[in-house]
Design a protein around this nucleic acid. Structure first.
Length: 295
DNA sequence: ATGGTAGAATCTCTA
């Protein structure tokens, strides 16, 4: 079975390219990130015409994750258990000068009540489905924006919650076939970035992010793309700006953590670097795993 | 020349 993951940066803008990739590569299951559309906007027909079923979760023009499969798609979950939402920081309390003088002192504070009563919205960043016997999770880890930004704490909490869920799946069944694939928005090693100096003080490289990423190994998972492609400066993403791709100023941020039962089946990994070429490319390229039949 | 790209809810946000 051929299992791939690809942050496509808008599935509507790139549907022809994505379907062409599926057909050219012979991919059976594709985990897609950054679809940038709502469910009803997803171009399902083009995938179905090529022989793939699609599961998708998307709430807006941001985020959005999907799985396309030609080997079945079952038990779809639009989030992982315990997936945190992003809570906007509370607005600063109005000063005395701003408060209306006639407001009764015991008036209920509705904004505070809303913050307490409504859980933060869970973003469309994780979708699970069982395809060809493998529990596949298409993951779009929060970017973090900047160290110290509320989105940075959210990113760390999101990764830790995913790790806890994934550890639970293996505890329930040590033989479980699980693949956690996608855009992790973490640069695990200095050799995964064109110039570590360019990321000093930036997200993606902080010890906390790297520890959150490495914790999946402690939970029993193996990052099989590095296992099969250990060469330094093997990138999966090149920024659109500043001629990053022609200059090969890339990042390695798309990975596949697998359970032991899947790890044993991996016979090869390919990063489809050529997919970054030409007009209309995503800024990420597909990462492809070949899996032998289960023992 | 102090930007530079791309996609989307485009008098601007996100990456």
């Amino acid at each position: 079975m051929r299992l791939a993951t690809w942050n496509v940066n808008s599935v509507r803008a790139r549907v022809d390219r994505v379907v062409a990739f599926l057909e050219r590569s012979g991919t059976d299951v594709l985990a897609i990130q950054e679809t940038k559309c709502r469910d009803e906007q997803f171009p399902v027909a083009a995938f179905e015409a090529a022989g793939y079923e699609v599961a998708h979760v998307g709430h807006s023009a941001w985020n959005g994750v999907a799985i396309a499969s030609r080997v079945g798609i079952a038990d779809v979950e639009p989030a992982f258990p315990g997936q945190p939402g992003f809570a906007k920081p509370a607005a600063p309390a109005p000063s005395d000068a701003d408060a209306p003088a006639e407001a009764p002192a015991d008036a209920p504070d509705e904004s505070q009540a809303t913050l307490l009563d409504v859980p933060p919205p869970v973003e469309a960043r994780a979708l699970g489905a069982t395809c060809g016997g493998v529990r596949v999770w298409s993951l779009y880890v929060p970017h973090g924006r900047a160290v110290g930004d509320p989105h940075y704490a959210y990113k760390l909490a999101w990764l830790e919650a995913l790790r806890a869920a994934a550890a639970g799946w293996l505890a329930d069944d040590p033989q479980a076939q699980v693949a956690l694939v996608g855009d992790w928005n973490v640069i695990p090693l200095d050799s995964d970035v064109y110039d570590p100096g360019a990321f000093v003080g930036h997200t993606h490289v902080t010890p906390a992010e790297r520890a959150a990423f490495a914790a999946f190994a402690d939970a029993g998972y193996t990052e099989v793309t590095r296992e099969h492609l250990p060469a330094e400066h093997t990138y999966t993403y090149w920024d659109y700006q500043q001629l990053a791709f022609p200059r090969n100023k890339g990042l390695r941020i798309d990975f596949a953590y697998t359970s032991p039962a899947v790890r044993r089946r991996v016979t090869g990994v390919v990063i489809d670097r050529d997919e970054r070429k030409g007009k209309g490319a995503s800024d990420h390229v597909p990462v492809i795993l070949d899996l032998a039949d289960p023992a």
